[in-house]
C-alpha cells in the first residue's frame, strides 16, 4: 500500500481509540473537576463495563444485536450504581481528602480486579458486534483517465468501527448539554466552583458527589462496552485506559471538558497513527513525554484556567 491510503487506515484506527478514550477521560475529568479527587480505580470501572457487557450478552443469547443493545444500556448503569455505592460507603468516610482518596481508590482497584479474576477468570473473551460489515474505502489516484477513485487492497474499515465513533460523539454532546443546559448540570458546576457556598444555598453536595462519581464510572463503562467487540474483555484491561485518561486529562487541563475531548482526539489519533507506522510503545513514550512538557511549560493544561 502507498503512504496515503496507509495513513488513512491508521487515522481511522486512531479515531476509534480517540472516541473510546474521550468517553473514559471525560468521566475521569468530571470526577476530578467536581469532586477534586483523583480516582485511581477509574480503569477498573472501564474493565467492569467490558466484563459485564460480555456477561450480559452471553446470558441473553439470541441475536448478537439484542445482547449488545442490552449490554450498552445495563452495563454502564450497573457500573454507575456500584461506583456511587463505593462513593457513599468509602469516599465519604475519608471526607474526600485528596491523599486518602488516592489510597482508597488504589484499594478499590485491587478489590475490583481480583474479584473479577475470581469470578470471571483470566481468559479474554469477545463480545460479538451487533453489525460488522466490511467497508472498502476508495483512494484518489492520478490514472490514465485523469483523477479517479480506486480501492486499494486492505484499505477498509467496518460499519461497527464507524458506529463507535458516532456513538461516542453523540454521548459527548449529551454530556456537554447536561452540564451546560440543565439544572442538574448547573448544580454540579456550582458544587465544582465552591462546595461550601453550594451547601449554603441548599445543594446536597454529598448526593451530587455520589451522582458525579457514578456518572464518571458509567462513562468509562460505556466506552468499554463500545470497544469490547473489537478488543475482548479481560480482567487486566483497565491499565491502559487509566494511564491514557490521566495523560489526556492533564494535557487537556484538569476539569476542563472541551480540553479533555481535544486532548483525547490528539492522543488517540497519534496513538493509532504511531502504533501503525512504528510501535505502540513509541506512541506511549511520546504521549508521556508530551505530559511532561505540558506539566513543565503549561501546568494548567492546554485549556485549563490558570488558578486565580
Amino acid at each position: 500500500m502507498e503512504f496515503g491510503p496507509y495513513l488513512m487506515l491508521a487515522s481511522l484506527e486512531g479515531a476509534v481509540t480517540a472516541a473510546v478514550l474521550a468517553l473514559t477521560a471525560v468521566g475521569l475529568s468530571l470526577v476530578f473537576g467536581v469532586m477534586r479527587v483523583v480516582n485511581v480505580a477509574h480503569g477498573e470501572f472501564f474493565m467492569l463495563g467490558a466484563v459485564l457487557a460480555w456477561w450480559i450478552a452471553t446470558t441473553m443469547g439470541g441475536h448478537p444485536a439484542a445482547g449488545f443493545a442490552a449490554a450498552l444500556i445495563v452495563a454502564p448503569i450497573l457500573v454507575g450504581v456500584i461506583a456511587a455505592a463505593a462513593d457513599m460507603t468509602i469516599l465519604k468516610r475519608v471526607d474526600y481528602d485528596p491523599e486518602r482518596t488516592i489510597v482508597v481508590t488504589i484499594g478499590l482497584l485491587y478489590i475490583i480486579q481480583q474479584l473479577t479474576l475470581m469470578t470471571y477468570g483470566p481468559e479474554a473473551r469477545p463480545v460479538e458486534p451487533p453489525f460488522n460489515t466490511r467497508l472498502a474505502l476508495p483512494w484518489i489516484e492520478w490514472g490514465e483517465n485523469g483523477l479517479g477513485l480506486y480501492w486499494p487492497w486492505g484499505l477498509s474499515t467496518t460499519t461497527y468501527k464507524l458506529a463507535v465513533i458516532g456513538a461516542a460523539a453523540v454521548v459527548l454532546i449529551g454530556v456537554w448539554l447536561l452540564m451546560t443546559r440543565t439544572r442538574i448540570g448547573l448544580v454540579m458546576r456550582a458544587t465544582q466552583l465552591d462546595r461550601e457556598m453550594a451547601q449554603a444555598f441548599g445543594i446536597p453536595v454529598e448526593r451530587i458527589y455520589a451522582l458525579v462519581f457514578g456518572l464518571g464510572a458509567a462513562l468509562a463503562a460505556l466506552g468499554a462496552v463500545l470497544i469490547v467487540p473489537i478488543q475482548q474483555a479481560h480482567y487486566l484491561m483497565g491499565g491502559d485506559p487509566l494511564l491514557l485518561s490521566f495523560i489526556v486529562v492533564i494535557i487537556g487541563g484538569l476539569g476542563s471538558l472541551p480540553g479533555t475531548v481535544v486532548a483525547a482526539i490528539l492522543i488517540g489519533m497519534s496513538d493509532g497513527i504511531i502504533s501503525v507506522f512504528f510501535t505502540p510503545t513509541l506512541a506511549k513514550i511520546l504521549a508521556t513525554l508530551l505530559v511532561a512538557l505540558v506539566l513543565v511549560f503549561r501546568p494548567q493544561g492546554l485549556f485549563g484556567a490558570r488558578p486565580a
Partner: peptide, 24 residues
Amino acid sequence: LPAHERAKTGIGYIPQGRRLFTEL
C-alpha cells in the same frame, strides 16, 4: 440539620469576599 437543609429554612448568607460562583 445539615448545611444544605438549613439554607431551606430561610437563612441567607452573604459571605466575606462574596464567594460568587465566578464562572457562572
